[in-house]
């Protein structure tokens, strides 16, 4: 972990994992906030029983070619809860999210070190089946990206890929997923028309329905509302709150209010480092790090 920036100076009482990263050597960061970081190595301030952690991210370092994008990031993602990642543009929050279902594998020259435990297994183990991994960890993207097919075909795409052929079963999946995504009533009479004819908000909910069609355990959302208007945004937010009853949700958002509205836990990232992770209420009411407070009060970012 030679790229670590945080010096452990105080032992956290609340976090069992932080003991594992007791030693981190300082390098020479150029940022003016260096001092603060060096004085406060700890950044996990939430107590989550290890049984309730769906994905346990530990000490992730990630490089795009020569450029390092993530530095020793930890993140416990709690089961059946919403975990939000916030931070200014380019802080690495999307990179972190995309590395969870290994979408970063698509990027040429991307290299990653560290552990992501999912059911006790490291996602970056060489013999992990990447396709079945992505079936279990679904993803919603920034811009709604339905396929240029009918609404029905969009949803049956995943199940068909995974070998379901029975018409009846497929129809049931279509209905269930659209219901879950709170879209069914709006599109029930036009399932066989093009998905591209839907409004942006409907398209994004269709994408969520599509992600649900393969029964994932975890749903990653990468700024799912940044391309939507306020009404469509609030629908997606309501939907996320519904979904956490059955699924684990991790969401990247550029909108602090969104995090405070829906997230149970929030991580604040800056320049590729996790600055502070705690329960959302705690973070927004009384952030521990001065930098978090400055960001939340709008003094930078």
């Amino acid at each position: 972990m030679k790229f670590g920036l945080f010096n452990k100076t105080e032992k956290p009482s609340s976090d069992p994992q932080s003991e594992e990263k007791a030693v981190q050597s300082p390098s020479a960061p150029r940022d003016k906030n260096t001092e603060e970081w060096e004085n406060n190595g700890q950044f996990i301030f939430a107590e989550i029983p290890s049984d309730d952690i769906a994905i346990d991210i530990k000490g992730i370092n990630l490089w795009y070619g020569e450029k390092q994008a993530l530095y020793d990031v930890d993140l416990p993602v709690r089961r059946n809860a919403i975990t939000a990642l916030i931070g200014p543009s380019g802080c690495g929050k999307s990179t972190l999210l995309r590395s969870i279902n290994r979408m970063n594998d698509l990027v040429d020259g991307c290299r990653i070190e560290g552990e992501m435990l999912f059911h006790g297994e490291n996602l970056y183990d060489p013999d992990v089946d990447i396709n079945s991994l992505r079936t279990r960890i679904g993803m919603i993207f920034q811009k709604p990206n339905p396929f240029p097919m009918t609404i029905r075909e969009n949803i049956t795409y995943g199940p068909k890929i995974h070998g379901i052929k029975d018409k009846k079963e497929l129809n049931e999946i279509v209905e269930r997923c659209l219901q879950q995504a709170a879209l069914y009533d709006e599109v029930a009479d036009r399932l066989d028309t093009s998905a591209l004819g839907l409004s942006g908000g409907q398209q994004q909910r269709l994408c969520i329905a599509r992600a649900l069609s393969v029964n994932p355990e975890v749903i990653l959302m990468d700024e799912p509302t940044s391309a939507l208007d306020p009404i469509a945004t609030s629908k997606i937010e309501d939907l996320a709150l519904q979904l956490k009853k059955e699924y684990t949700v991790a969401i990247v958002t550029h909108n602090m209010q969104q995090a405070s509205r829906i997230a149970d836990y929030t991580g604040f990232m800056y320049l590729g480092k996790m600055i502070e992770f705690s329960e959302t209420g705690k973070m927004f009411n009384k952030p521990i790090k001065a930098m978090t407070e400055r960001y939340l009060t709008g003094r930078f970012g």
Binding site: L106, T135, F141, N145, P146, P148, M149, Y157, I161, V214
Partner: peptide, 25 residues
């Protein structure tokens, strides 16, 4: 590229993505 990402994120292989999403599009 978003079509490729959407398909891969659902656990489709690159070939399935190519033949079922990219080529039809």
């Amino acid at each position: 590229q978003s079509y490729r990402e959407a398909s891969l994120a659902m656990g489709a292989t690159r070939w399935e993505t190519t033949i079922k999403v990219i080529v039809p599009a």
